[in-house]
Write a protein that binds this DNA or RNA. Structure first.
Length: 473
RNA sequence: GUGGAUGUAGCUCAGUCGGUUAGAGCAUCGGAUUGUGGUUCCGAGGGUCGCGGGUUCGAAUCCCGUCAUCCACCCCA
């Protein structure tokens, strides 16, 4: 390739790729705002200490870090939570609770890149601070699921797997796992789906669990539904409270309209880090990709980072895996939303009107709010066949061509459907040049109708499968 | 960090047993008797065959190294 490629794991966003990214961002913002979250941001470069304090020195190997010219140890942010915790902590007393904030930071990590895992990505972070009730947990998961919906995914495409560490703890104790064995059991449970059952069993045995107990734990972590858990542990002295809370959580999810996306999965542990309560991940239902989203409750983290003692919960959702899923399912819209409205082409009357007036028309249209393109070579405007000009405008995805007729009128021709008998709109050239309100409004309405008709045609024709258009889906 | 697979035009890929100037389709650009047009036709640009070394009279092709990508581990904020 060329001598100037991007760094490994970093992406160039060409216009069609940026359009996809923008599509995802739009959905993120739209849903977050719908749930009354407000957007914030912080610096992409932070003191290295911000991350070592929380995660220890081992994390440095996975960071982009360096010493700046003032001798400070700094790192590109690998996650948003420490920044968020600092910002909330600094104004904890002044902020109205619960805090409902979201952000779309670009995050960095120094790791070998793989499918769905680059060295840079954008990640929606949604957090709630100051509410310990399970209703907050339900609200948070509803945001994540509603984003899937907003992007055209269904509960057949994406599943939410939910667990609760308090519940898992209580269940493990109820079946006889000693407290000292819990961390080891967590480590096994966390990767239970990614390694053979015998390996998990072996590791549980090594952790000191007796044979029957190993089988019990494996069964619970691999297949137990909430109904089974409730039947078995709903009256257990230690677990009843947690079963009841989870039942309320599920009821809230149902009422929020996302219950059918959610499955209990006690193997969802989310690392061993800082989660204290509910934990969840969103996966594609076919299991082909990495997790789309992960989050949960971290009630002690703010305090441990030196902030105030407030309960908190949140999730992160990256653009990479989500983008791959949308691409696989053909859910990215064709470039229509950014389409240019009009492209100036010559037409039979071009030589009578003259190029300066043609440009004046373009200017009048732009002042009226239309996006208007034209060739940037004045000689070719008159020398090149109109059909070639129209053709390139059509290929560029412009909605309509605007041309001068022999009789002096200005004609707008839709480029969206079949060219034979394409809808046209005739404008009075003088009024168009003057930017007359009524004329501009006519044009606006007409363009709107053409787009609506084209969308309807696409929807009708595209029902059985992929039809016209780009292979990028 | 470990192991495996793959690198040919912007994209998808041909390229025989090692053989002379590396091809196709799509895309891009220009044009087809001053123009109403998705088609068609003609033409053009675009390559250090990932990079470096080796074997050979001769390497896209065989060997070694290296880099990148993908897959599986490790790790997961």
């Amino acid at each position: 390739m060329s001598s100037t490629t991007s760094l490994p794991g970093f992406r160039d966003f060409y216009p069609d790729e940026l359009a996809r990214r923008a599509h995802i961002f739009r959905a993120w913002r739209a849903v977050a705002r719908k749930y009354a979250f407000v957007e914030y941001d912080g610096p992409p470069l932070e003191p290295l200490e911000l991350y070592t304090k929380k995660s220890g020195d081992e994390i440095v190997g996975q960071l982009y870090n360096f010493t700046d010219k003032g001798g400070r140890e700094v790192a590109l942010r690998p996650e948003m939570t420490p920044t968020f915790a600092r910002m909330v902590g600094a104004r904890a007393n002044a902020l109205r609770k619960p805090v409902r904030w979201f952000s779309i930071p670009q995050l960095f990590r120094y790791e070998r890149a793989q499918r769905g895992r680059l060295r840079e990505h954008f990640q929606l972070n949604v957090d709630i601070v100051g509410e310990a009730s399970e209703l907050a947990d339900a609200e948070l998961l509803a945001v994540a699921i509603d984003i899937m919906r907003e992007l055209g995914l269904t509960s057949a495409d994406v599943r939410a797997r939910v667990s609760d560490r308090r519940l898992l703890n209580a269940i493990l104790q109820a079946v006889g796992v000693a407290e000292a064995q819990v961390p080891a059991v967590y480590a096994v449970v966390d990767k239970i789906a990614r390694q053979p059952r015998e390996v998990s069993a072996e590791k549980l045995a090594q952790a000191g669990l007796a044979g029957p107990l190993v089988e019990r734990v494996l069964a619970l972590a691999t297949g137990a539904t909430f109904e089974q858990v409730r039947a078995e542990f709903g009256t257990d002295a230690g677990a009843a409270e947690h079963v009841a809370r989870f039942a309320r959580y599920r009821a809230h999810l149902d009422a929020l309209g996302v219950g059918d996306w959610v499955d209990l999965d006690l193997s969802i542990v989310r690392g061993l880090a800082y989660y204290t309560g509910t934990v969840f991940e969103l996966f594609d239902a076919r299991g082909e990709l990495r997790a789309i989203c992960g989050g949960g409750r971290y009630d002690t983290l703010l305090k441990s980072l030196g902030g105030t003692d407030l309960p908190a919960l949140g999730f992160g959702m990256g653009d990479v895996v989500l983008g791959e899923l949308l691409k696989d399912r053909g859910l990215f819209p064709d470039a229509g939303e950014e389409a240019v409205d009009l492209h100036l082409v010559a037409g039979n009357g071009a030589s009578q009107v003259g190029f300066p007036d043609a440009l004046r028309l373009v200017t009048a249209l732009r002042r009226a709010g239309f996006s208007v393109a034209h060739g940037l070579n004045a000689e070719r405007y008159l020398s090149q066949a109109t059909r070639n000009q129209v053709d390139s405008a059509r290929k560029a995805g412009v909605t309509a061509a605007i041309a001068f007729r022999e009789d002096g009128a200005t004609e707008v021709t839709s480029l969206l459907g079949a060219m034979k008998g394409a809808p046209t709109l005739v404008l009075d050239t003088a009024r168009a040049l003057a930017g007359e309100d009524a004329t501009m409004q006519d044009l606006r309405d007409w363009l709107h109708r053409q787009r609506a008709a084209a969308r309807a045609a696409t929807a009708a024709g595209a029902a059985p499968g992929p039809t016209t258009g780009s292979p990028n889906g």
